[in-house]
Design a protein around this nucleic acid. Structure first.
Lengths: 168, 168
DNA sequence: TATTGTTATACTCTATAACTATA
DNA sequence: TATAGTTATAGAGTATAACAATA
């Protein structure tokens, strides 16, 4: 698995660069390049930790991801799923076949286009997708509960900024 | 590849829950469970986007991760590398052998313990690890430059909180 | 005897190429 | 003819089991 290059490095704490508006409770650098280096590592580590929380059902990452996509967006064709997961159609065919065997997804012909196949999550599939998501949210919520309210507010606002960046 | 279950879901914007200290520029919820749900998705999406930036050298995620670890922490034994990457020793043997063939790492006997093998990155290996890291930092820095200073400061502080959470 | 590393072997996931069916 | 899906086959990556060398 190797959960993708974490690029673990720079175990040293944040370094104060240009002393801009340094009024907060710690030395933080707001210059883009230095902040980028620190932030990238913080984000990757946090996500790595969140990802470690998963249901102990033996579903591969790809299978779990497909279930989550179907759970969120409803029925999709094999091609749409493949594009969404950045995987080739034959690979998705196999993944979907595996999920179907386990009763986690269903295949149905497309009403208009006879070539296409609509894949949708079954109730069991949706439950499984929800289970892992809830475990991760629960872990994160436990961590957030240990912060003070100002820190939670800080993270809430940071989240909206991060989403804007990621969706750019 | 499938870059691990993104658990893409809930495309709706943040929902205001308990109206705590809602003085900021947007509706944000500071209650732990709701914040956890929103933040998890924001973090995963941001990291997914950052990960998309990588050197186009054909190195697998696992190989790249090993190079990054060696670059950050110096020489490590096969066992240490395997534990660090959450992979079994035979798998790491194979990964290291592949990197060695390409001149990116070197193997040397352990000075004290004749059983162990010390793996270290070569200059080429370090350069390759740096390259991907710099691409990701550069992409993130470009995004950060488009924010206003207050938002950068926000992210800088959020980063320190996230690191504290992840390392807990 | 326990531990480190390796080799042998098998399984999973993904890819490309070729084939079928439909538009 | 172009496209959606599948099948056949091969290539990475990882796992377990068995073996060699050292502590």
């Amino acid at each position: 698995m190797s959960y993708a290059n974490d690029m673990t490095d720079r175990q040293s704490p944040p370094v104060t660069g240009t002393p801009a508006a340094s009024d907060g409770p710690g030395p933080v650098d707001h210059e883009a390049p230095v902040l980028a280096a620190e932030l990238r590592l913080s984000l990757m580590r946090a996500v790595r930790r969140i990802r470690a929380e998963k249901a102990d059902l033996d579903l591969s990452d790809g299978q779990l991801s497909v279930l989550a996509v179907l759970h969120a967006r409803g029925a999709l064709t094999n091609r749409e799923l493949a594009d969404f997961e950045h995987v080739r159609p034959p690979s998705m065919t196999r993944t979907v076949a595996c999920l179907e065997e386990r009763g986690l997804v269903e295949r149905a012909g497309h009403p208009q286009d006879g070539r296409q196949v609509l894949v949708s999550a079954t109730e069991a599939g949706r439950a499984m997708a929800l289970d892992t998501r809830r475990r991760r949210e629960a872990w994160l919520a436990r961590q957030l509960e240990q912060l003070d309210p100002a820190e939670r507010e800080l993270l809430a606002r940071a989240g909206t900024v991060l989403r804007r960046i990621a969706d750019a």
